[in-house]
Amino acid sequence: MQKKITLRKTIAIVKLSLFVIWFLPLPLDASKRKILCMKLYQYVSILLTITVIASMVYAVMKNLHDPELVIKSSLGLFPCFHVIWNILCRVAIYQRLQYVTFKMENFCALIKTREEEIVQQNYIDKCANFYGFCISSFYMSVFALFVGPIVLDQPLPAPAEFPFDASRQPLRAITYLHQVVVGLQIAAHLSVNAFMAFLLWLASARFKLLIEDLRTIANIYDFMKCIEKHQQLLEYAKEVTLTVRPFALGTIFFSTIALIVFGLIFITGASLTLKIQCVFLAVSALLEVFMYAWPAEHLIHISNNIAQIAFETNWYDESEDFRKNLQMIILRSQKPILVILPCGLPSLSLHYYASYLSTIFSYFTTMRMMFDEQKNGA
Rank of each mutant, 00 (worst) to 15 (best):
C108N: 13
T113W: 03
A354L: 04
L272S: 13
R90I: 11
S73C: 08
D66F: 00
D66N: 13
A109R: 10
S73K: 01
F364W: 14
Y43G: 06
Y352I: 08
K238P: 01
T6P: 08
L190K: 00
A173E: 14
F164L: 07
F198R: 01
F81I: 03
I302R: 00
Y123V: 04
R8A: 13
F23I: 09
L350N: 12
Q169Y: 03
L75F: 14
L75R: 02
K103Y: 11
E161D: 15
Y316N: 09
Y43E: 12
K32Q: 13
I186E: 11
D317Y: 06
L338D: 11
V182I: 09
L272G: 06
K9E: 15
T251Y: 02
E239A: 14
E115A: 07
I93F: 04
I53C: 08
N325Q: 12
F322L: 03
L152S: 14
S355K: 07
K238E: 15
N106C: 08
N106G: 02
V119L: 04
Q95Y: 10
Y58P: 00
F322E: 11
Q231A: 12
L7F: 00
L249P: 02
N86G: 08
I46C: 09
L299R: 07
N122G: 05
H178G: 10
T251Q: 11
E117Q: 11
L48I: 10
K112S: 14
Q169R: 01
S167R: 02
I260S: 02
L200N: 05
I53M: 11
A12V: 08
L233P: 00
L26F: 00
H230W: 01
V279S: 08
A197R: 01
F253I: 06
I217H: 00
G183H: 00
F290H: 03
I217E: 05
V91F: 01
I53D: 12
T241K: 01
A54G: 05
Q179W: 05
K3F: 11
S55V: 02
L48G: 09
R90H: 12
Q121L: 07
I11E: 13
L234H: 11
L249W: 07
N376F: 03
F162E: 09
V244Q: 02
N376K: 07
Y236R: 04
Y58I: 07
S45H: 07
Q277P: 00
A160V: 12
Y176D: 12
Y43K: 05
D317F: 00
